[in-house]
Design a protein around this nucleic acid. Structure first.
Lengths: 170, 170
DNA sequence: CAGCTTATGTCAGCCTTGTTGACATTCCAA
DNA sequence: TTGGAATGTCAACAAGGCTGACATAAGCTG
């Protein structure tokens, strides 16, 4: 880092939210909050002997039906081998359908089955309920700030992916 | 959920930040941002063949020097067996020192060695740099909102732990 | 104070989900 | 038409979760 350890030492006022102490609190808040964020889906999943990896796959297949394995890889940021294991169990269990591409037969297009969509709804209902409670407790201005900071925290390529999903659907 | 699927359907105005679509965007923001949040420390750690688990242990030992294994367990939310594996390597590598308790000899009190403190500083410098950039880009009001929402998202017992660390040190 | 119960930490082994390497199939461009 | 690139699958390994079994130290109780 070329920066001084504490930026606030340079300015007596108005940058107090950038002290090491403030930043550390933000880091710990992020750590503890993420546990809450995943807690409800995790409980549902463990009953079905699935894991977080299955949830992520189901979520983004639902968001972009017909997406290819390769596309999903870019979003999830894991290796194709790792994703493949998860997809295989979801396909075997009848939650996901994989269709060979028409124009390009190397590609597999992924869709949720009725059963897969049912689990997706169950998981995201639970996760949204927690999110809704937090949003309601904090209020609209806080929510806007929350999203601004999160967006600024993303790596550049993931921010593009996030914005594309947010604005464009596909 | 006893709640309707979309709270906004009940109110024509002022609750638009609670629509399913808004909530889903918040969920995805949280997912992508967490990857950015851990990216820099992860890179440093993988060079040393350590993982995120080592980082968490080092972070909280630094925050509360002399803490016991059992106390750390409560903060990290993993089993003692799982933590033990990580601690063992950190102790073997000379980053953490474990001292048998004086009053209660069953307890082990944990401290960072000089070398451990050096790694801690390196990791948290990197993580704070990212956090500082995000905070600065978003501004103080956004930061306040960010922390409000995160706090409201935590599970109750973790929120207590978080607040205790934030306000009390130990 | 002897012996049971509880608390704490360690060791062994399993499972999920990351990883890399090897490979089959399909497409495309020289 | 053939060789390289893209896509997806299979196999094997590593990190870090988990449970179970157990050793040791304290505390409690008759």
């Amino acid at each position: 880092m070329a920066e001084p350890r504490s930026a606030a030492s340079y300015s007596g006022e108005s940058l107090l939210y950038l002290t090491d102490e403030q930043l550390r609190q933000g880091i710990e808040a992020m750590f503890f909050a993420y546990r809450g964020f995943t807690a409800d889906p995790d409980r549902i999943l463990s009953d079905l002997s699935y894991g977080r990896a299955h949830h992520r796959a189901i979520h983004f297949i639902n968001r972009a039906p017909g997406t290819t394995v390769n596309n999903l890889l870019a979003i999830l940021g894991v290796t194709k081998q790792s994703l493949n294991r998860v997809l295989r169990t979801l396909i075997e269990d009848g939650l996901v359908e994989s269709r060979v591409g028409q124009s390009d037969k190397r590609e597999r297009h992924l869709f949720l089955t009725e059963q897969g969509a049912a689990l997706e709804a169950r998981l995201s209902d639970a996760q949204r309920a927690r999110m809704r409670a937090a949003y309601r407790a904090a209020g609209p201005e806080a929510v806007a700030g929350f999203r601004q900071v999160l967006e600024a925290m993303m790596e550049a390529d993931l921010r593009r992916t996030y914005v594309r999903l947010r604005d464009g659907g596909q």
